[in-house]
Design a protein around this nucleic acid. Structure first.
Lengths: 235, 235
DNA sequence: CATATAAGGTTATCAGACAACCTTACAATG
DNA sequence: CATTGTAAGGTTGTCTGATAACCTTATATG
């Protein structure tokens, strides 16, 4: 039983912002159109105007609307939005598999780059993460942190800032989804295999042979997919 | 002189949010640390608490902080945040190259999956993007939109929601950065080569041969990198 | 026709109050 | 002594009401 994972209910501004955002992204309010006034929204939604303002501030920050004092809030033309993946998004198996599948080529490439570019500091960080993982007796929060740290250390060793950002982002969400879906005891047998594969990967990176590192990462991820009962294409 | 383009002075919440965000991203307030209380910030900054709250709502929406009622606002871990890449971020060549390098394995994998999974609708959308691109006389906004549409259509044909999300995000940022960095005339000669490579890729996907599709995407992207004077590792 | 002013409406900010929640300290109980 | 309950103090979340700043439209004036 894992405490500290209880979700707090969302606050009013966030809920209202999400609802308006949905209306926008689903085309019910189109670019150039004006949102109802703050006063109207407050009345219609049964909240204070402050809450509406905070929601609109969020939408403005996301670039979904722009406000003109004295006139109103207008929906902007669609443009690039950040990538977000909430824990709820990965509750269904298909989405989880999709993200895992995305992870594979990224981390294989990262392994190859890490073999080419790692520094002694990078290797030390990889080793520290490995050591933390060996110490974890079970697939507990510590083990998850160590597994994440290992993958992040590999990504950082690529010397490419965006591999570090994207892999850190993806690996964390996958780990959290696994943790949310599994009882700790079930994962215990997986840890030993994972550590072995991590060691092989570490050694491959240290050998500065990118082909070997890529192969080791591929084996590790395909093994992880199998252990998670995920079917991925192979060719 | 462009009227209607005059920048409105930023509102107080946006300015305060930006300042706090700077303090966070520049390490003056670290992950896990608590922000000063709303009351304190309002007094220190000489604004009302509502303004502070709107600013914090923005930061919360950006994922930079999380708030706990009765306790305070805390800076989140970097990997808990959404992925954002602003156009400014790609103004320096190293960052642009890093993102391009990240793009390569993703789109190669996407080509393979698209070869396996595409539907007739997917293929039609790829063809429509190709047709739009052939019609563009120059590397104009239309050409950029068509190029993006092509890559997005390929990503959508994977049948994997996250390939679509991530590749769409990355390809768009790269296209915008290229557009910002180049005069239109300089890119004109690139268009013809790009179209040829797109056609080869399209045919490879349609053939349902993932190896051939991957090879075609690899050639296209490595060619694009060469044309952009980017040096990528090969192995 | 052009310019100035007034009126009405909307967003931006301010101030103050109370609700809900959290943390800490202290008292009561077994 | 350990555990449970309660009170106090502080913080965020929401509400109410007011004024400032801005925008648009209508009307008056030269």
């Amino acid at each position: 039983m894992e405490f500290g994972q209880i979700r707090r209910s969302e606050q009013l501004p966030a809920r209202i912002a999400a609802q308006i955002a949905r209306d926008i992204t689903e085309g019910r309010i189109r670019p150039g159109e004006k949102l109802p006034t703050e006063h109207f929204l407050a009345k219609a939604l049964g909240v204070s105007r402050s809450v509406v303002r905070e929601a609109i501030a969020q939408l403005r920050n996301e670039g979904l609307v722009e406000t003109r004092q004295g006139v109103g809030a207008f929906v902007t033309e669609p443009h690039a939005r950040p990538i977000r993946i909430e824990q709820d998004d990965l509750a269904n198996r298909q989405s989880f598999r999709d993200l895992f599948q995305l992870r594979v080529p990224l981390e294989i490439e990262a392994a190859g780059l890490a073999a080419l570019h790692h520094t002694p500091d990078d290797l030390q960080r990889i080793d520290e993460a490995l050591a933390s993982m060996s110490g974890a007796e079970k697939w507990t929060a510590e083990g998850i942190v160590a597994d994440l740290a290992f993958h992040r250390a590999v990504a950082a060793a690529t010397g490419n800032e965006y591999f570090a950002v994207f892999i850190g982002f993806i690996a964390e969400r996958i780990s959290l989804a696994i943790n949310a879906a599994r009882a700790a005891a079930v994962l215990e047998e997986i840890v030993e295999v994972t550590i072995k594969e991590h060691v092989v990967l570490r050694d491959a990176i240290a050998s500065r042979d990118p082909r070997r590192a890529r192969e080791a990462m591929k084996m590790h991820l395909l093994g992880a997919a199998r252990r998670l009962d995920l079917t991925l294409e192979s060719y």
